[in-house]
Amino acid sequence: MTTIPDLLRKELSDHCAHYASRRVGLIWVLQKLQAHFGGYLPDEAITLAAEIVGIPEPDVEGVATFYNWLFREPVGRRIIVVCDSISCHLCGCDSIVARIQKRLGIGMGETTPDGEFTLLPVVCLGNCDKAPTMMIGDELYDCLTPDKVDEILDSIYASAKAGGR
């Protein structure tokens, strides 16, 4: 049974306590736990969240499996989400996805063997005037072309190698 540092547990618990109902803090708690556990929610994170928030485990699992940005399986260090909604679709997101897949050797929903990237589709990123668009980690990339994708991945790999992970 994995535990979490007391400081983190206290932070999570205090956050819940600040609402009229502790459950309001659940999604925030799950986001924090996800960050703590390397990007996803292992089984023990569900148990921990239930304990900290004070609700039954199935309620936590129900939430953890409902939302697009909560992961119950391990993911890469960086998540690539490519918008495949209508405006990006018109502007060629398929070729962006194809280039990423070819370059990383993974399919949609998969993680590279080195654990660096997970590739996922995403709902419209609200950046339609600069389609096609994607996010890698916290960064937004727009007006993409397949060649630009290569450049972006190159620079990420380069900075990762330089220790800038």
Binding site: I46, P58, G62
Partner: peptide, 25 residues
């Protein structure tokens, strides 16, 4: 199970046309 009988170990998981009813484990 949950709402009426206040049971705490059965839930609805997932979303869209992939909703699962069961226990966490």
């Amino acid at each position: 199970y949950g709402d009426y009988a206040l049971g705490r170990d059965l839930g609805a998981f997932g979303s869209r046309n992939r909703v699962y009813f069961g226990r966490v484990r």
